[in-house]
Design a binder for these strands. Structure first.
Length: 277
DNA sequence: ACGCCCACCTGGAGGC
DNA sequence: TGCCTCCAGGTGGGCG
């Protein structure tokens, strides 16, 4: 579920809530996450202070002052929560950090993930650049490298539908099923159009639409359709701003014709046949 | 090499 | 109440 805007929202509130705090103890569940996580790996962080939090596409990085970092991904249902000490932990809590702030203020950080498609790894900070999952990513859509020219080059010759190309994290990284549908609607491009057949003017629209829908999502603190909540447990407000995703049979906000749904690569795509060519 | 499909999981919603 | 089917925001391995 979480795409770039949701992960960005989590990163921002983690900066408020855990940067500067010390990890005094760690716990984990006995369930395996995407890439596994041993207690001995978690214990690398005990006694360390969290110095900064970064977002790379849909990955979250939490750096500690002892040379180790957390490399995490929320998958479909991952949540990161920071709660007062003593509060009951939700089912499917897989990682716990006991935190100590100034004046010995205590609290807990939880990584919760019912479906366990998420990842929570502890990595040496200086080796983060060697990690395959980060190396495989194209540029972040808010980075300087994400230019119209870059997108033109990346899409050239692609025989895949534009929907699939935008979902491909190797081309550029951070979009998912919701924001791809929204960007295609805003750009007026059919999800079925082959990426390699787009004209330059269309790619320009897609480039602008990508940043626009992601910015809207961040401004609204994310889209909460079923599971997503921020670090305080609050839902995001972006669902009300979605123009096509999840709106099958509802009237198109631009032309009034019903929004259609189709399946591409096993995922639902929502679009307006009249407005997207 | 590239593009597609499915497995990986749990839980909620809706039909009967 | 229960049981069954379908669906869900992501990723990557394996197949043709």
């Amino acid at each position: 579920m979480p795409e770039l805007p949701e992960v960005e929202t989590v990163a921002r509130s983690l900066r408020d809530k855990i940067v500067g705090k010390r990890i005094v103890a760690t716990e984990r569940s006995d369930k395996t996450l995407r890439r596994g996580l041993k207690q001995s790996e978690l214990d690398r962080l005990v006694g360390a202070r969290i110095t900064s939090v970064e977002r790379h596409a849909k990955f979250l990085l939490m750096h500690a002052d002892n040379g180790w970092s957390v490399l995490a991904h929320l998958g479909m249902t991952g949540q990161m929560l920071v709660r007062p000490d003593g509060e009951e932990r939700p089912k499917h809590t897989h990682v716990v950090f006991a935190l100590e702030g100034p004046k010995r203020q205590r609290g807990e950080f939880w990584f919760v993930d019912p479906r366990r498609f998420g990842q929570f790894s502890v990595v040496e900070t200086k080796r983060l650049g060697e990690r395959d999952e980060l190396r495989a990513l194209g540029p972040d859509p808010f980075s300087d490298g994400f230019t119209v020219e870059f997108l033109v080059e990346q899409l050239r010759g692609k025989q895949t539908p534009t929907k699939s190309a935008l979902m491909d994290q190797k081309i550029f990284a951070g979009m998912g099923n919701i924001y791809v549908a929204e960007a295609l609607f805003v750009a007026g491009i059919s999800p079925k159009r082959l990426a390699g057949k787009l004209k330059r003017a269309e790619i320009e629209k897609l480039h602008a639409a990508t940043r626009a829908v992601l910015t809207l999502g961040i401004d609204n603190r994310g889209t909460s359709i079923s599971d997503y909540v921020d670090v305080n447990g609050n839902v995001g407000e972006n669902e009300a701003f979605l123009q096509v995703y999840g709106r099958e049979d509802e009237p198109c906000s631009r032309c009034g014709k019903p929004i259609l749904r189709l399946t591409q690569a096993g995922r639902s795509t929502f679009y307006c046949k009249a407005c997207q060519k």
